[in-house]
Computed example of a mutant assay.
Amino acid sequence: MTTVPRQDGTPVVALRAAALSYGDREVWSGLDLEVRPGEFLAVLGPNGAGKTSFVRALLGRRPLSAGTLTVLGRPAREASRHIGYVPQQAALSAQAVLRARDLVRFGIDGHRFGPRLFTGGVRRQVDEILESVGASAYADVPLGMLSGGERQRVRIGQALATDPRLLLCDEPLLSLDLHHQRAVTELIDARRHSHGTAVVFVTHEINPVLGMADRVLYLARGGHRVGTPDEVLTSESLSRLYGTQVDVVRVRGRVVVAGAPDETAAPPHHPEGRHERSRRRPHTTDGVRA
């Protein structure tokens, strides 16, 4: 179903002079950013630069240390019902019995207390959502038996179940092959075009979404850059950001970055020090990784 994108003049996300710190360590500061309805913002940066903290702030789970943040004109913690969240892939046991349709249903009524019944209306809604993300064929299959790409389709369905105004995707392409990366990104891109849903897409690899991203927020220890991919992903821009020579080359429509420091010095108590450092990658890369 196609609807007219929602354009009421209110930014979906607005940050003014925003800063976030952990103890004495400032993760990022002086961030001014607006995300409009239907916009696709890709969030890039090295390990420990604050991408996960940015996600937590938008979800209302981490307060800013300075500045302001609003989602749909209200504090982030009050706007959670308007946010669809696609988390990072998590390992699942093959014995996991939760079915695909169960996960989507939690997106519809997971906020409610008490027993949940599959009424006719809820079942139809779940079936429609599963069909929209191409997951009908495995609606009743336990999640532990699905491939990574199939699980991500179901997670996107769960995130869309409440008709969100903001779709927040935290590394949704990790561990997916190129075929499933393309399928997942096309689902997300189709949603923002059909419903005017704003997309904030945190990723280590810009190339799968390079043709979709309207703007890039690049976070690094030296500061941040906001602009179109052509403005931010240049040798001059990233060299200024890192304070050292960084080479950005475009090869057959792909972006290759070489020489950016691998910043992984987040302290152990820092959320990004716990899970991001477990997947360090060299920062001479085919594409932009963080």
Rank of each mutant, 00 (worst) to 15 (best):
V12R: 05
A18K: 00
A19W: 03
R25E: 14
L31I: 04
V35L: 15
L41A: 07
G50K: 02
T52W: 04
R56G: 06
L58N: 08
G60R: 06
S65G: 15
A66C: 11
G67E: 11
T68P: 13
V71K: 01
E78V: 06
A90P: 02
S93E: 12
A94S: 13
Q95K: 11
R99G: 07
D102S: 10
L103I: 11
V104T: 06
V104N: 07
I108A: 11
D109Y: 05
L117A: 14
G120A: 15
R124T: 13
E128Y: 01
L143H: 06
G144K: 03
L146G: 05
L160S: 14
A161Y: 13
D163Y: 08
P164H: 14
L167Y: 08
L168K: 05
S175C: 03
H179R: 14
T185I: 04
A190G: 11
R191W: 11
R192P: 12
R192S: 07
H195G: 01
V209M: 00
G211L: 00
M212S: 04
R215G: 13
A220V: 05
A220Y: 02
R221Y: 12
G222M: 10
P229G: 06
V232P: 06
L238V: 01
L241I: 06
A266K: 05
R277I: 04
S278Y: 00
V288I: 09
R289H: 08
A290C: 08
